[in-house]
Nucleic acid binder design. Structure first.
Length: 877
RNA sequence: GGGAGCUUAGCGCAGCUGGUUUAGAGCAUCUGCCUUACAAGCAGAGGGUCGGGGGUUCGAAUCCCUCAGCUCCCACCA
């Protein structure tokens, strides 16, 4: 096989991905091995790959590939989420562009359009993941609207209903007037906004005036009271009075409640129970009338009298004008406040009373809270435990109905009398309805299924269960023990964004305990949020996200993977910078070139292994082992970027810059060294493979003859062995010595290969002399004191003294100055250590090893001072 | 308003239960090199009184208090 001079990622990546697929390496079936399972956080079915996905899926792939190479039965389940609001919004927009309005379609027609859209766009994102190298088991690709999956969702709903954990109720919900649906609290984004505070005069029936401050003057038509603080003298004169709502002339009472802030505005609060959550609570408490003045689309209704039909914002301006004209507007102040916006449509949320379905959460949440508290489920980084606890302890009931068509339709059927039954299907519903009404002649036609869909998260929370077992035991019926669920559940690691810790992670844990007998995953790795250079979150709306596919084309998938991982410790934000991908690409290039070098070495049967090579092999063996131990430790702690950085340095610095340079043959390559080198390369590729799957497979296949179907991705990770610290320390000193010599050459303008002589005195491993001689380009190494009467440069590494004769090259003055500086530094150091040791309290209180260490520092320092003084003397200084 | 976290070289970070660290890598920067694996490279160098102040201790980047700045989560004062 010829080795191309340039590494071509595009070609290599598509080649190996297809080959891996052909050989079924991604597919998993239960067997005797230990399972390692990951379920993908399913992206929106019509979504497009963004940087967040890149990060998230790279991390998952690293974990999965590594587990596979540890001999585990790795199974990474991919799939997509039907994402009801997001998808429905897209379909509505697409139809609108074609001149079709949703309200002109039947539910069935609309859903068919949505399916068509899903079939067309769904899966694009999965194809993009393949380009990244994701080793998912594509035969298990899931979808939250699959038949089996839908059945689980419905069963779970029915099960919860029967357990009394689902109820229907009138509640204040976050209404999205554009999507015409309620959205959950979590889907409301509060934005700081420049608004106005209007001071409005309400006439008091018995004479006088009450001034009320509000940001929403258009809601006065829904006012049913004015509230004051019972202990506020400023408003005491209003107690028990009746006031008249401006413009519409309705009479409303003044109520007293401690909720009212005496300091804010005028101390007088208008109460609009239908349009403000706090007012609603006040209204409930004081049994106030509730007057809803809005239509679902945000326009005002007939109860707003003259303003009926106007949009809420237009009405606000009109009301302001009319109030001003009537002399009822005392003043208007600028006011900054926060307004809730719908995450999906970005229109401002209207608090609205409506009948919705809710899940009672408190009891369900208890085991899920305990799971994280007692460590059954580990969060990485652990700081999220606090947030998790806080949320779970204050959990509120979950509004699960959405006024949408795309999604799982709520399995409730209304009877002619207005009551309802909940069942898995229409037939069962009919049966229940007949039993309930004792009317055997009731027909399906007389049942009307609820029009709403379930919140997307009501299906996502079953993901780790349902992808393995579509038939969740939800109805209380006996379900066949499921082979896959038993084997793969609970999953091992979940990798996701912290922003959906509550949306999704917490609810999956809840669902796991409720229906699958335990936690759904052992570890949760919460990734950072990918931001742009300005620190803004990358998002489609800002258009500040680079196109991942273009990035992969430019830097190779391996390069981008490395770029994503290098600086993304769990839970920290990742300010994305293309330079990181560049670094990744450069590393690929380095690996490729190292391979070209090694591949070019032909074994020479007659060549004898040089001493330097033997030493280098011995050293690198230990260096590799040590790095491996540290890398394994990093993995155990989910410190992937640190693990990667260690491999990066191991390969680039230790393997390429030191090891390969030392063993580079001048003539023929001996077998012993070559074999060792090929083995090292093989081991390095194994450790690298989870991070950079493509280039490692390409090189591994070229490194030796392989059997058909043999692949690095199913090879085993090396085992961590004992390593020799002494050997590593000796080599470290060697490196420092070489660096000192190179620095000397640079400062004296001595060419790198100009031979020099070296005198060594003191502790230095003589076995390393051949290595030192070779890479420092020395003509000779003399053990012993520097020769008398020669000018030269002296330096220290560790406890060894070195001398290099320089003759005329040496600038005595400069050298003396340098030595004096060094001397001063050492003296200061020794002085500080002496001071410490003179401190009786230190010697008494500090543990013995610490004191001994200080003593050693002192004696080493004194020895160095002595050596420097001798050198100065030799220079005649 | 409540809670959590962060602040260490130009940048993004590591430094775990205080003592082999008078602070560590990476990238960037500067200097010298086209040395037949690699200029997407090689060799070398510089750069931080660990946000400010106080305390505990023989000893603090590390523990405590306090101030300042930033971030996130929760709540949503009209």
């Amino acid at each position: 096989m010829e080795t191309p001079a340039k590494y071509n990622p595009a070609e290599v990546e598509s080649k190996w991905y297809a080959w891996w697929m052909d050989h079924g390496f991604f597919h998993s079936e239960p067997d005797d091995r230990e399972p390692y399972t990951v379920v993908i956080p399913p992206p929106n079915v019509t979504g497009v790959l963004h940087m967040g996905h890149m990060l998230n899926n790279t991390i998952q792939d690293v974990l999965v590939r590594r587990a596979r190479m540890q001999g585990k039965n790795a199974c990474w389940v991919p799939g997509t989420d039907h994402a009801s609001i997001a998808t429905e919004a897209k379909v509505v927009a697409k139809l609108a562009a074609e001149g079709i309005r949703k309200q002109d379609l039947t539910r069935e027609q609309f859903v068919e359009h949505a399916w068509e859209w899903t079939r067309k766009h769904g899966g694009i994102i999965l194809e993009q993941l393949k380009k990244l190298g994701a080793s998912c088991d594509w035969e298990r690709t899931g979808f939250t609207m699959n038949e089996g999956y839908s059945r689980s969702v419905i069963r779970v709903f029915v099960d919860l209903y029967r357990k009394g954990k689902i109820y229907r109720g009138v509640r204040m919900v976050n209404w999205d007037p554009q999507a015409l649906t309620a959205v959950s609290d979590e889907e409301v984004i509060y934005k700081e906004q420049q608004g106005k505070l209007y001071y409005i005069r309400y006439a008091v029936k018995s004479g006088g005036v009450a001034v009320v401050a509000t940001t929403r003057p258009e809601t006065i038509m829904g006012d049913t009271a004015i509230a004051i603080h019972p202990g506020n003298p400023k408003t005491a004169h209003l107690k028990g009075k009746t006031v008249i709502v401006p413009l519409i002339g309705r009479e409303i009472p003044v109520i007293e409640d401690e909720y009212v802030d005496r300091e804010f505005g005028t101390g007088c609060l208008k109460v609009t129970p239908a349009h403000d959550i706090n007012d609603y609570l006040l209204g409930e408490k004081h049994r106030l009338e509730v007057i809803d003045i809005f239509n679902d689309n945000g326009t005002l209704n007939e109860r707003a009298q003259a303003y009926a039909g106007q949009d809420r914002f237009a009405a606000r301006r009109q009301v302001e004008k009319d109030l001003a004209a009537a002399g009822l507007l005392e003043k208007v102040e600028d006011y900054t406040h926060k307004v809730g916006y719908s995450e999906r449509t970005d229109v401002s949320i209207e608090p609205k009373l409506s009948t919705q379905w809710f899940v009672r959460m408190a009891e369900l949440a208890a085991p899920a809270l305990a799971a994280v508290e007692n460590g059954d489920v580990q969060l990485y980084p652990p700081k999220f435990r606090n947030t998790y606890r806080h949320w779970m302890e204050n959990i509120k009931d979950w509004c699960i109905s959405r006024q949408l068509w795309w999604g799982h339709r709520i399995p409730a059927w209304y009877l002619p009398d207005g009551s309802f039954v909940v069942a898995e299907n229409e037939a069962q519903a009919l049966q229940l309805a007949r039993e309930k009404t004792k009317n055997k002649s009731l027909t399906a036609d007389s049942l009307q299924q609820d029009n709403d869909c379930l919140d997307t998260w009501f299906s996502s929370w079953l993901w780790p269960v349902s992808v393995f077992d579509p038939a969740v035991p939800g109805s209380g019926e006996e379900v066949d023990p499921n082979r896959d669920l038993q084997y793969y559940y609970p999953t091992s690691d979940l990798v996701t964004a912290p922003e959906i810790l509550f949306f999704w992670v917490a609810r999956m844990i809840i669902a796991g305990y409720e229906w699958a007998g335990g936690y759904p995953f052992r570890n949760v790795y919460l990734t950072g949020i990918v931001r742009d250079r300005l620190g803004r979150k990358m998002s489609k709306s800002l258009g500040n996200s680079p196109d991942p596919v273009a990035l992969m084309n430019r830097y190779g998938a391996d390069g981008v993977r490395m770029g994503m991982l290098l600086t993304s410790p769990a839970g920290n934000d990742l300010p994305f910078d293309e330079a990181l991908c560049e670094q990744g690409r450069n590393f690929c290039n380095k690996i490729w070139n190292a391979f070209r070098l090694v591949k070019g070495w032909q074994p020479d049967e007659n060549a004898v292994q040089p001493a330097a090579s033997a030493q280098a092999v011995e050293w690198f063996r230990h260096a590799f082992r040590k790095a491996l131990v540290e890398i394994n430790d990093d993995f155990d702690k989910y410190r992937l970027s640190e693990a990667l950085m260690k491999i990066y340095k191991l390969f680039w610095d230790d393997f390429c810059a030191w090891y390969l340079e030392i063993i580079k043959p001048k003539g023929g390559m001996d077998n012993a060294t070559l074999d060792a080198t090929l083995l090292f390369f093989d081991r390095l590729l194994r450790v690298l493979h989870p991070f950079m799957p493509f280039i490692t497979e390409e090189i591994w296949q070229r490194l030796a003859e392989r059997q058909p179907g043999e692949s690095l991705m199913i090879a085993l990770q090396p085992y961590a062995n004992e390593f020799d610290e002494t050997c590593l320390a000796h080599f470290e000193q060697l490196k420092n010595t070489v660096t000192a010599i190179r620095t000397l050459r640079q400062s004296k303008n001595i060419a790198p290969r100009e031979p020099l002589e070296l005198y060594v005195k003191g502790a230095f491993d003589e076995n390393l002399f051949p290595v030192l001689q070779k890479i420092a380009h020395l003509s000779a190494i003399h053990p012993g004191r520097q020769p008398e009467g020669q000018n030269g440069h002296s330096f220290l590494t560790g406890a060894a003294e070195f001398f290099i004769p320089l003759g005329a090259l040496l600038n005595v003055e400069e050298e003396t100055k340098k030595l004096r500086e060094d001397l001063a530094y050492q003296q200061k150091f020794v002085a500080s250590v002496q001071q410490k040791l003179r401190n009786e309290k230190f010697v008494q209180h500090a543990p013995e090893p610490v004191v001994a260490l200080e003593r050693k520092k002192l004696s080493d320092g004194e020895a160095r001072i002595k050596a420097i003084e001798e050198q100065l003397a030799a220079l005649g200084g």
